[in-house]
Amino acid sequence: MGVGALSVWEKSSTARVTAPARPRKLAKVPFVELADGRLQGVVSSGSDIGRVYVSSVAARTYAFACSTNNNRPCGGARGMFCKHIQALVAEAVLQYGAERVARYLAVEPPDGEPTAQSITGAMSAERPEKGDASAAAQVFSRFLRQLAYLEREPVTAPLPEMQWFPPTRAVA
């Protein structure tokens, strides 16, 4: 009957499934996520404060895309990773740890311990194709949704279900 078949982790109501983000500076890359089979995020333009780029790299194929929030293609992302994608990888490594980023993208850097540089290098070496930028709108809207969280007032009515979400000191 499967009694005793579950491990302690499987029987835990408070098992930690995802590690919290590590603190990092947000000026250059305000949003990063490992989602939908891609490393994707939002990169602030270096020259125009009103413009951001939505950049992504797919797991496994490393197909990449980069365009502005107004859907203009990034001039730098033609045959290779643009500087926005490089910044995206670097900040993802700060937020999630190099190991988790490498695992998610299915990258095996040649010499052991992954770093932002070795992950970017290993992907570039595969001469990835340009991917389609159709997911950009969704990524951008998720970013806006999170920004909107800051506008929500705190409440003092208890949220009993938060008991299922204890903090953890473990890092990603």
Binding site: A21, Y149, V155, M162
Partner: peptide
């Protein structure tokens, strides 16, 4: 108990929680 809670962007962590 006295509780206070808020939604937050995922990059607000650590001391940022107290600030919210």
């Amino acid at each position: 108990r006295a509780s206070v809670s808020a939604p937050k962007p995922d990059t607000v962590v650590g001391a940022g929680l107290w600030q919210l």
